[in-house]
Design a protein around this nucleic acid. Structure first.
Lengths: 209, 209
DNA sequence: CCACAACTTGCGTGTCACGCACATAGTGCG
DNA sequence: CGCACTATGTGCGTGACACGCAAGTTGTGG
């Protein structure tokens, strides 16, 4: 009944869930953004070594399965922020946490491109990135000692950070972009969290004005 | 072949599209968030006075139809910003544009609650709010004279504003909240766009902390 | 070793998205 | 005014899918 990794059942559950998600994303990448409709539930289930019925015990749509990895990663943003030293300023802590989580290792460009630039996946991809907001807002509220019931700052900041991550991903995927994801991420976060990056000018040109 | 309202065909198209969207949202509200699965495509089409086949010439899912109004409104944010005087500072212009667009009239709480707090609609609702980002980013870029290809500021700010609107909506819907939506919106936007509201002290109570 | 709970699986059902072909209404030109 | 042309509405058929249900299988705790 435990939810941690000591329980055999829980571990098996996580394993199958990840297997299905991994298979779904892999097949989606293989068939390409245009042939996404050709990725049948049966194929995903077979590739993951389970029955189609079991597949939809875990996911209720192909999009959900394909974006599962991204969603799971988003859920860890709050925890990543909490693991930063308590005396670190909020902006620096958030930036460090996000960069650490999203660039270790550097994301798979094919996978990210699949979920971010396929129209049929748009809704589910947004859900995946938005998963970060709840835990992140709580972590921010805990760090700043604000009351989430009255003050909008934690939730709004969390949404802004999640949006910045999304925009950074989109920009990083654009062709002819050699910048590292960490650098792109830092630039994007700087627009909403004015942390002074160690190697950048104080403000982007044409700032808030 | 024109797309404006002088074309009879375009007007008819818009009318049916709005009729379907309106019918979908109305039925969804009637059945409640729990009975959303009971809202059949056939019902929506009948309520809108078209055939089921025509319904999915306009929308490819019930969620899309239900959230159509919200999506259309989001698309107008960019235009709303462009209609602000050019010499107005960016933060004030964005705040004014958003408040004008979203509080004239005050949103229908039932409808907003339906699309924002029904799990099955979550993805589509996020898409609807995200629709604002593209046009808004372009309008911000035009106003600040930045190059969207190189500078992340317009896109990130647009995402942050869209997120703030979404958070404001969620907060405004919470039970026991008597604040006007305009006020909530202003507080939320202030977290990402530090504009000084004309009728408030330089900082909202319990500010950034 | 045994009862219980969780998980997987096959089957049946109802709903849906969409391609295709035809009917109808709107448009622009001679 | 009438005539092609195009956009749009509609009916039908097909394939895929989500999900409830019940039986089989595997892990857990006493």
């Amino acid at each position: 009944m435990n939810d941690d990794e000591t329980d055999l059942r829980a571990r098996n559950s996580r394993a199958t869930r990840e297997a299905i998600g991994h298979a779904a994303l892999r097949l989606a990448i293989e068939r390409g953004p245009n042939g996404l409709a050709l990725v049948r539930v049966h194929d995903i289930a077979t590739a993951a070594g389970v029955s189609p019925r079991t597949y939809n015990n875990y996911f209720s749509s192909r999009a959900e399965a394909i974006c599962a990895f991204q969603a799971d990663q988003s859920r860890r943003v709050g925890q990543a922020l909490r693991s930063r030293p308590a005396d670190e300023p909020l902006d620096q802590a958030v930036t460090a946490a996000v960069i650490e989580l999203y660039t270790d290792p550097e994301p798979d460009k094919a996978g990210l491109r699949m979920i971010m630039s396929t129209p049929e996946l748009e809704g589910e991809a947004l859900k995946a990135f938005t998963m970060a907001e709840g835990p992140l807002a709580e972590a921010i509220a805990a760090r700043t000692g604000t009351d989430p019931g009255r003050d909008l700052f934690p939730a709004v900041t969390a949404a802004a950070v999640a949006g910045a991550i999304r925009v950074a991903g989109r920009h990083w995927l654009e062709p002819g972009n050699t910048e590292s994801f960490a650098a792109t991420l830092r630039r994007a976060l700087f627009c909403v969290l004015p942390v002074a990056p160690p190697d950048a000018p104080p403000r982007p040109p044409g700032g808030i004005g």
